[in-house]
Nucleic acid binder design. Sequence first.
DNA 1: TTTACTGCAAAGTGTTTGCAGACTA
DNA 2: TAGTCTGCAAACACTTTGCAGTAAA
Lengths: 159, 159
Amino acid sequence: MKKPSSRLNVIEQDSPENSSAEQLIEALRTKGFRITKIRQSMIEALVAASQPVSAPQLLEQVAQQHPSVNKTTIYRELDFLADNKILSEIDILDGMKRYEILHPDHHHHHLVCTSCRDIQCVEVPHHDLHALEGSIQKTHNFTVQSHVLEFFGLCGKCS
Amino acid sequence: MKKPSSRLNVIEQDSPENSSAEQLIEALRTKGFRITKIRQSMIEALVAASQPVSAPQLLEQVAQQHPSVNKTTIYRELDFLADNKILSEIDILDGMKRYEILHPDHHHHHLVCTSCRDIQCVEVPHHDLHALEGSIQKTHNFTVQSHVLEFFGLCGKCS
DNA sequence: TTTACTGCAAAGTGTTTGCAGACTA
DNA sequence: TAGTCTGCAAACACTTTGCAGTAAA
């Protein structure tokens, strides 16, 4: 069903995974939220993930440590984490949302293989898009808040 | 057949709606496909649409002329039309796909209002993205076939 | 006549809701 | 203890499948 993801390490983690998860958890704690086992497990799974993951994938992952976890909790928690700017949603046009840890200083886009559904991350020089957003703002009377830019094609293995 | 028109602003139709629908239908006919009432009605509805439409929206639309039409037919026909390069799929992250007539010489992107879900079209200078795709091809060993670029924000009415 | 196309019923998949009970702080 | 978080059951919305019947060419 799922094959081990290719380690292309396009994006390098700023800090070791554990530390990153702990930082996020600490931030939530200081905001006054409770750190439950499931919340912790989800954040760790998301930090460790090498690709954006879907809710069903995450359910499977978390269930390995907490077999009684319910899908409702997963969905609610994903909403919660997205609301708190810990996750960003991405869409690869296959009908379900995926989530990944949001690195505020690390905006990037994705290369989605249409054959094996593998997802790589890629950073794009931002001045182009910023300039574009500025001109859209003026010509279309539209206030751009965010954008989605994803590339579809064939990865090295599939081409 | 093809009129060269690269206007700024919102996309302008090259030709009257009827004519465009008839061209598409004629192309299908010469490929050997049957032109049923529902197929015809769907193409006309899609050509007339001012925004990308979802399957449920299209069902409602077509049902006005053909009350007995079934959702299964709508979904199958949308697949069929997309396979035949008459439609392109777009995704505005609200959980369902939308479709619009594909103008091969008229690639564009969308401005999605996160408040009222209104969708405007916008053309983006393509040399930037082409250059980007070229460099991705080399640096990431990834063959780019297509991309999705959508902007989210507030339209004039909602901001 | 041929077979592409259609409708119907049913099921599949991802997601959400209401509520009672459990657990963190 | 208090209020956040969780599990469960059920419902939702969009989409797909199998099959028998209809209609375009």
